[in-house]
Design a protein around this nucleic acid. Structure first.
Ligand SMILES: Nc1ccn([C@H]2C[C@H](O)[C@@H](COP(=O)(O)OP(=O)(O)OP(=O)(O)O)O2)c(=O)n1
Ligand SMILES: [Mg+2]
Length: 1099
DNA sequence: ATCCTCCCCTAC
DNA sequence: TAAGGTAGGGGAGGAT
C-alpha cells in the first residue's frame, strides 16, 4: 500500500517532467549548435582533435552556417506557431527556455509568453547547449542534482518581466527547492544553502568571457555551504565549454611519441599476435553487442522452457531440436559472457500475450538502468557519489586532458556539465575539469545485468532484451493479476508493479533503474525518458498528445539524425507536433513508405511493433576498425586469418554455418592524415565491401576458419590496396544454417569431382553439393516444430499456392497441443473457410504427383508451413493480417529458381538437395553446372553487388558517436597533391595493372572498383609529371590487357556506356571495362591537354 | 509483384 | 596512452 502511494506520488511528480532529448548527440554539435563566435578558438584550443571535431572544424563553414540557418528556422517556426502577428516584444530575445514539469502558469501559457516575446521555447533538456534557463515550480531530488549547475528560475520571472515590459534579472527569481518564493530556506536533499547570486545580467551572451577560476571546479564549489544552488552564468554548459582548455596542448604527446616507435607498434597494433584478444577484452561496444546476443538467446531459452512446460506431452517426440545455446560457453572461463545463466519466465505460454482474448490492453514497461556503467562502478565507490563521474579507459592521470578515450557512461552530475556518453575524455575535461573517471568493470556489469533480468523475468509475460541495461517487458498479465488480487486498492496497478520492480532491482543491485510504462513500446520508451533519473512514469493515452508534441522525431526510438534532417529538408520541420499535420502520403514521400507509415503512427502514439524475443540470428560478424596498422601483405593476411578464426569460433559457439561472406574494408581516405587524430583510430576512411558465396571445399555451408580466411583474404587481395592504408577489417557471414541437423541421411552427390576445381576453384566449389542433407533448419520455434510433426503435406504447384493443410489432415493430438492462441487462430481460419466455400482453396496435391517445378523450401515442411501461415497477400488466406507467425518467421516466402527436375537430373543435381538451398545459391549452382556442361562457354552471369549511391541533400554531419565504424559523411574532399598513391610507389606498374585486370576477370568489378581504379589513374596523372608518366604507362598496359581479354568489344558501341549492374556477364564486364577505359582516357587527355597541350598516345 | 542485394541508418 | 562492435530494419533498384 505504501509503495503504491509512493508510486502515485512519483507519477504525479514525473508526469510533469518533460521528455528529454536523445542521449547521445555529437559532442561537436554543442559548440557549433550554439554558433558561438568562439568556435574557431575552441578548435584551436583543442589542438589535435578527434574525428568529429576535425570534421566540425574542417567543414566548419558549411556546417556552422547550416546550424545558424537551422537555428534561425527554429525560431521562425516557434514564432510562426503563434502567428507572427502575435509577436509582442523582444524582451526574451536570446533566451532558450526549458520548462520542467508542472508549472503555473501552465507550460502552454509560458510557452506562448516566451515565444511571443522573442524567446525560444526549448522542449528538450539535453539539447542543453541551447537551454539558457530552466523554469520550474518543483523539482525531484534527482532533478535537483541534475540541474545543479544550471539556471533554474521560477515562472514569475517570465510573467513579471512581461508585465514590466523588460527583462528582469533572473537571479531575483531563482528557484529554491525547499523554500517557496523567497531565497533563503534550506531544502531537503542535503543541498547547499541558497543565496542569491551576485551577478544579475540574465542571459549570458555567447561572448561572455569565462572567469577561469570561477568556472573551473563547479563540483567542489557545490560543496561549499553558502553557495547558491544554481551557480552564476559561467558554469552553465555553454560557458563551461568555453573554459579554456588547460593542458590542451598538442594531442597526447605520450601517445604520439609512442606511435612513432616501431617496437611499440609491433606490440600494440593489429600486427601484435594477441591484438584481437586484447582488443575485444577491452572493447565496451563489443561487450555490449555480445551481451545483447547472449541475453536474447537466454530469454529465448527461458521461453522455450516455459512453453515446453506447458506442452510437455508433445515435446521431444522426434528428438531434440537444436537450439542456439546462450552465452558462448566454449570461450574461456575468464570471460565476461553470460554463459551459464538461466532465466525463468514468470509464467507459461498462455500468458505470453498473444491471446486475442486479453489482447485489448497491453501494458509495456521499458526498464533501463540509470547511467549504468557509472552506477555499477559507484556501488563499490560510494565516496564518489555526488561527483561528476564517468567511465572510460583513460584514468586521466597525466595527459588526461588531451585523452581521446571515449566515455562510455557519464553520471548525472557529469551530465549537468554537458558531458555525454560517447564523448572523448578531453571534451569532458573541457566541460568539467574536475571530472572523475572510473574504470570499466565488465564482470560487474554482467552480474548486475543478470540479476536485473532475473527479476524482470519473474514479472514478464514476454520480454525483449534490448541491451545489457535495458529491457522491454510485457506485463499485461502481471498488472491484471495485481488488480484482481487487490481490487480498488490502488489507482495505478502498472505503476505499483513498476515500483515493486524498481525497488527490487535497487535492493538487489544497488543501482537505480527508471521505468517507463505505456500501452506500446514506443510510448514506453518515451515514458522512460520522462522517468529518468531514478523514477517511474506511466504515459497514459490522455497525455500522449501532450507528451509527444514538443518532441523532434529523433526523440522517437528508431529515428535519428538522418531521418530528422530529411524531414526538415522535405517537410520543413522535424517537430512531432508539426508533423502531425502532414498527411501520411507526405511522410511516406519524404521518408519512404515503411518509415513514413511508422512515423505517421508513432506521432499519434500508435506502435504496432511486437516484442521481439525469439528471432533467430541471421548473421555473425567480427569487425575491427581500431588499431589496424599494417606494413605489408603478410601481416595483413595473418590478421585476416586471425579474424577468420574469431568469426569461426563465434559461429561454432552457436552451431551455425554460413553460405555467404562479406568482407568490409576501411581504407584511409587519401586526404586524411596518415595517423588518425584519435589514438589508433581509423580516421576518415573510404569503405569497400565485397560479398562472395562461402563454402567448404565440399560446397557446403561452413564455419571452418580456414574456409572463411581463404575467402576473406581472396576478397581483400582483389582490392589491391596498399596494406599500409588499411584502417579496418570486418568479416560478416550470412545465410546461416543450423549445424548438426543430421549429417546422417543419405544424399546424392553431384558427379563433379574435385579435379574440376583446378582452374576456377571458387566456382567449382560451388558446384559441389552437400554430401549431407539440406541443412536449412532455421531454429524452428516450438509451434512450428509441432506443426511439422503434424505430418502435413501441402501441395506445391507450378505457381506455388500455399495454404494451411486441410483440417482433416491435421493430427488432432498435435493440434490440441498447440498454444491456445495459435489453435484459436487456426480454428478461426478453418471456420471461416467452411463458411465461405467460394474461397479458392486448392486441394492438396498428393506427394507423388508433385509437379516438376522445384520450389525452394527447407528439407522439412517447416518452412512451407510457416510460410503458409505467415501473413500474405490476398489469394488464399484471410485478408485479416495473421499475427500467427509474423514475428517468428524470419524468412517468409522462399522464392525459387524455376527449373525442370529433368534438367536438374541431367546436370547431376539432386532436386531435393537443390530445393533446400537459398535461392541465390541455387542460381549459382545452376549457372555453374550449365556452364560446365556447355564446356565452359562464356556468358555465365556472375553475382555482383552494387547499389547506386543516393545523393544526400541535407548537410553532412558525422554520426553522433565516434564509435561508428565509419563516418559516412564528409568523404568528398578530393585528393590533394602529394598524396601518395599505391601504384606510384610501385615500380612495377605493369604488374599492378595486370593483377587488377586479371583479378576482375575472375571476380568482376563493382562500381566502386571501377571508380576507384579510374580515380587512381586520374589522380596520378594530376599529381605530377612523374605521375602522369606512370598513368600513361599503366594505361598502355591496360589497353594491352583489354585487347587481350576483350578485344572484340573495343569498338563495340562506342557511344554506349556499359553500366556496372548487379549481374554481369563476361560480355558486360568487358564492355564495362572498355567504358571505364575510355572515360579515364578522356579525363587524362584533358589533363594532358592542359598541361602539355596534347593528348595521350598509347601506342 | 516479389525477391534479392547493397547500402544506409539506428541502437546500445 | 586506448581498446571506434555488431545486428537488424528498411529503401532503392535490378533480377526474376
Ligand atoms: N555511446 C555509448 C552509449 C552507451 N554505452 C554503454 C554504457 C552505458 O552505461 C550503457 C547503457 O547505455 P544507456 O544509453 O542506457 O546510457 P546510460 O545507462 O549510461 O544512461 P541513461 O540510461 O541513464 O541515460 O551502454 C557505451 O558504452 N557507449
Ligand atoms: Mg541506461
Amino acid at each position: 500500500m505504501e509503495h503504491t502511494n509512493n508510486a502515485s506520488n512519483k507519477q504525479l511528480i514525473n508526469s510533469e517532467a518533460k521528455a528529454k532529448a536523445k542521449r547521445s548527440r555529437s559532442p561537436s554539435e554543442s559548440p557549433e549548435d550554439r554558433g558561438q563566435p568562439s568556435k574557431t578558438t575552441l578548435h584551436r584550443l583543442n589542438g589535435l582533435e578527434n574525428d568529429t571535431e576535425i570534421y566540425g572544424a574542417s567543414h566548419f563553414g558549411e556546417w556552422g552556417e547550416y546550424m545558424q540557418r537551422k537555428r534561425a528556422k527554429l525560431q521562425i517556426q516557434n514564432t510562426s506557431l503563434e502567428g507572427p502577428s502575435d509577436a509582442k516584444s523582444d524582451i526574451f530575445r536570446g533566451l532558450a527556455i526549458y520548462i520542467n514539469g508542472w508549472t503555473r502558469p501552465s507550460v502552454q501559457e509560458l510557452r506562448k509568453l516566451i515565444v511571443t516575446h522573442g524567446g525560444v521555447f526549448q522542449p528538450y533538456l539535453d539539447k542543453k547547449s541551447l537551454v539558457t534557463h530552466i523554469i520550474t515550480c518543483s523539482l525531484t531530488p534527482a532533478k535537483i542534482r541534475e540541474f545543479k549547475h544550471m539556471k533554474v528560475v521560477r515562472p514569475e520571472w517570465l510573467v513579471e518581466s512581461v508585465d514590466a515590459g523588460t527583462l528582469l534579472p533572473w537571479t531575483d527569481y531563482i528557484f529554491y527547492p525547499g523554500g517557496r518564493a523567497e531565497a533563503s530556506q534550506g531544502h531537503p536533499v542535503g543541498q547547499t544553502t541558497l543565496k542569491p547570486v551576485s551577478k544579475s545580467t540574465p542571459p549570458p551572451s555567447p561572448q561572455v568571457q569565462v572567469n577561469r577560476s570561477e568556472s573551473q571546479s563547479p563540483a567542489s564549489r557545490s560543496r561549499s555551504p553558502s553557495r547558491p544552488l544554481y551557480t552564476t552564468d559561467p558554469s552553465t554548459y555553454e560557458d563551461a565549454v568555453r573554459v579554456p582548455g588547460y593542458a590542451m596542448g598538442q594531442s597526447n604527446e605520450m601517445a604520439e611519441r609512442v606511435m612513432a616507435d616501431p617496437q611499440w607498434r609491433a606490440a600494440h597494433t593489429s600486427i601484435a599476435p594477441d591484438f584481437i584478444e586484447g582488443f575485444y577484452k577491452n572493447s565496451r561496444l563489443h561487450h555490449l553487442s555480445m551481451w545483447k546476443a547472449e541475453l536474447r538467446s537466454l530469454v529465448m531459452e527461458a521461453q522455450e522452457r516455459a512453453e515446453r512446460e506447458a506442452f510437455g506431452n508433445t515435446q521431444d517426440r522426434d528428438g531434440p531440436v537444436v537450439q542456439e545455446k546462450a552465452g558462448a560457453q566454449s570461450t574461456s572461463t575468464t570471460d565476461v559472457s553470460m554463459g551459464g545463466v538461466e532465466f525463468t519466465l514468470r509464467s507459461p505460454t498462455k500468458n505470453k500475450g498473444k491471446c486475442k482474448a486479453e489482447t485489448n490492453e497491453r501494458v509495456f514497461m521499458h526498464c533501463d538502468f540509470d547511467c549504468f556503467f557509472v552506477s555499477a562502478g559507484l556501488t563499490t565507490r560510494p565516496h564518489l557519489r555526488g561527483k561528476p563521474v564517468v567511465v572510460c579507459h583513460s584514468q586521466g592521470n597525466q595527459g588526461g586532458a588531451s585523452s581521446t578515450s571515449e566515455i562510455a557512461s557519464s553520471g548525472y552530475e557529469a551530465r549537468s556539465f554537458g558531458i555525454k556518453n560517447g564523448m572523448s575524455l578531453r571534451q569532458a575535461k573541457q566541460l568539467c575539469p574536475s571530472v572523475v573517471t572510473i574504470p570499466y568493470e565488465f564482470e560487474r556489469y554482467r552480474d548486475l545485468s543478470s540479476q536485473f533480468y532475473t527479476i524482470l523475468m519473474r514479472y514478464a509475460d514476454d520480454l525483449e532484451a534490448v541491451s545489457v541495461d535495458e529491457a522491454l517487458v510485457d506485463v499485461s498479465h502481471g498488472v491484471a493479476s495485481r488488480r484482481a488480487a487487490a481490487p480498488f486498492s490502488v489507482n495505478d496497478y502498472a505503476l505499483s508493479l513498476a515500483e515493486t520492480i524498481r525497488e527490487e532491482v535497487k535492493a538487489t543491485t544497488g543501482c537505480d533503474v527508471s521505468i517507463g510504462i505505456a500501452e506500446n513500446i514506443q510510448l514506453a520508451r518515451i515514458a522512460t525518458r520522462m522517468a529518468k533519473p531514478a523514477g517511474l512514469f506511466h504515459l497514459r493515452r490522455d497525455d500522449v498528445q501532450k507528451a509527444l508534441e514538443p518532441l523532434d522525431i529523433d526523440d522517437l526510438h528508431g529515428f535519428g539524425y538522418s531521418t530528422r534532417e530529411k524531414a526538415k529538408e522535405k517537410l520543413g520541420t522535424a517537430n512531432v507536433g508539426e508533423l502531425a499535420k502532414k498527411s501520411k502520403g507526405q511522410l511516406c514521400e519524404a521518408l519512404g513508405k515503411g518509415t513514413g507509415e511508422t512515423l505517421y503512427k508513432a506521432i499519434r502514439g500508435i506502435d504496432d511493433r511486437k516484442l521481439e524475443s525469439d528471432k533467430p540470428r541471421r548473421s555473425v560478424s567480427c569487425d575491427i576498425n581500431y588499431g589496424v596498422r599494417f606494413e605489408n601483405n603478410e601481416q595483413t593476411e595473418t590478421f585476416i586469418y586471425r579474424m577468420a578464426e574469431e568469426v569461426a569460433r563465434r559461429m561454432s559457439d552457436i552451431s551455425v554455418r554460413g553460405r555467404s561472406l562479406t568482407l568490409k574494408i576501411m581504407k584511409r581516405d587519401p586526404s586524411a592524415p596518415k595517423e588518425a587524430p584519435k589514438f589508433l583510430g581509423h580516421g576518415i576512411c573510404e569503405t569497400f565491401n565485397k560479398q562472395t558465396p562461402l563454402s567448404s571445399i565440399h560446397g557446403q555451408a561452413t564455419n571452418d576458419s580456414k574456409d572463411i580466411g581463404e575467402h576473406a583474404w581472396k576478397l581483400l587481395k582483389s582490392f589491391n590496396f596498399d596494406p599500409r592504408e588499411l584502417r579496418g577489417v570486418g568479416i560478416q557471414i550470412q545465410k546461416l544454417e543450423k549445424e548438426g541437423m543430421a549429417e546422417n541421411s543419405a544424399q546424392a552427390r553431384l558427379p563433379f569431382q574435385p579435379a574440376f576445381r583446378a582452374k576456377t576453384p571458387d566456382k567449382a566449389e560451388l558446384v559441389q553439393v552437400a554430401s549431407g542433407p539440406p541443412q536449412i533448419v532455421v531454429q524452428p520455434p516450438s509451434q512450428e516444430e509441432i506443426l511439422q510433426r503434424a505430418d502435413v503435406t501441402a501441395g506445391v504447384e507450378e505457381a506455388p499456392t500455399h495454404d494451411i493443410p486441410s483440417f482433416s489432415q491435421v493430427d488432432k493430438e498435435v493440434f490440441d497441443a498447440l498454444p491456445e492462441d495459435i489453435r484459436e487462430e487456426l480454428e478461426n481460419e478453418y471456420k471461416r473457410r467452411s463458411k465461405s466455400p467460394t474461397l479458392n482453396v486448392p486441394p492438396p496435391v498428393p506427394a507423388e504427383r508433385r509437379p516438376r517445378i522445384v520450389v525452394k523450401g527447407t528439407s522439412t515442411d517447416v518452412k512451407r508451413i510457416t510460410r503458409q501461415l505467415a501473413p500474405r497477400s490476398k489469394t488464399t488466406i484471410s485478408p485479416r493480417k495473421s499475427t500467427l507467425f509474423a514475428k517468428r518467421v524470419t524468412r517468409v516466402g522462399p522464392s525459387s529458381v524455376r527449373v525442370a527436375e529433368d534438367e536438374l537430373q541431367e546436370l547431376g543435381i539432386d532436386p531435393e538437395v537443390f530445393a533446400a538451398l537459398p535461392v541465390d545459391v541455387q542460381r549459382e549452382q545452376l549457372i555453374t553446372a550449365r556452364h560446365l556442361k556447355n564446356g565452359g562457354a562464356l556468358a555465365e552471369p556472375k553475382v555482383l553487388k552494387y547499389a547506386k549511391r543516393k545523393t544526400r541533400v541535407y548537410p553532412k554531419k558525422p554520426p553522433p558517436l565516434a564509435s561508428h565504424p565509419q563516418h559516412p559523411f564528409l568523404k568528398q574532399q578530393g585528393p590533394k597533391k602529394g598524396d601518395k598513391l599505391y601504384f606510384t610507389r610501385t615500380d612495377d606498374v605493369q604488374r599492378v595493372i595486370e593483377a587488377w585486370v586479371e583479378n576482375f576477370k575472375e571476380d568482376p568489378p563493382n562500381q566502386k572498383d571501377v571508380e576507384y581504379f579510374s580515380k587512381f589513374l586520374v589522380q596520378s596523372a594530376e599529381s605530377s609529371d612523374t605521375g602522369m608518366e606512370k598513368t600513361v604507362a599503366a594505361m598502355r598496359w591496360w589497353l594491352v590487357l583489354l585487347r587481350r581479354h576483350w578485344e572484340f568489344y573495343e569498338h563495340h558501341d562506342l557511344l554506349e556506356t556499359e553500366p556496372v549492374t548487379q549481374r554481369m556477364t563476361s560480355e558486360k564486364i568487358g564492355r564495362a571495362w572498355w567504358t571505364a577505359f575510355r572515360e579515364v582516357k578522356l579525363k587524362v587527355d584533358a589533363i594532358a591537354t592542359k598541361r602539355f597541350g596534347g593528348t595521350l598516345c598509347l601506342k
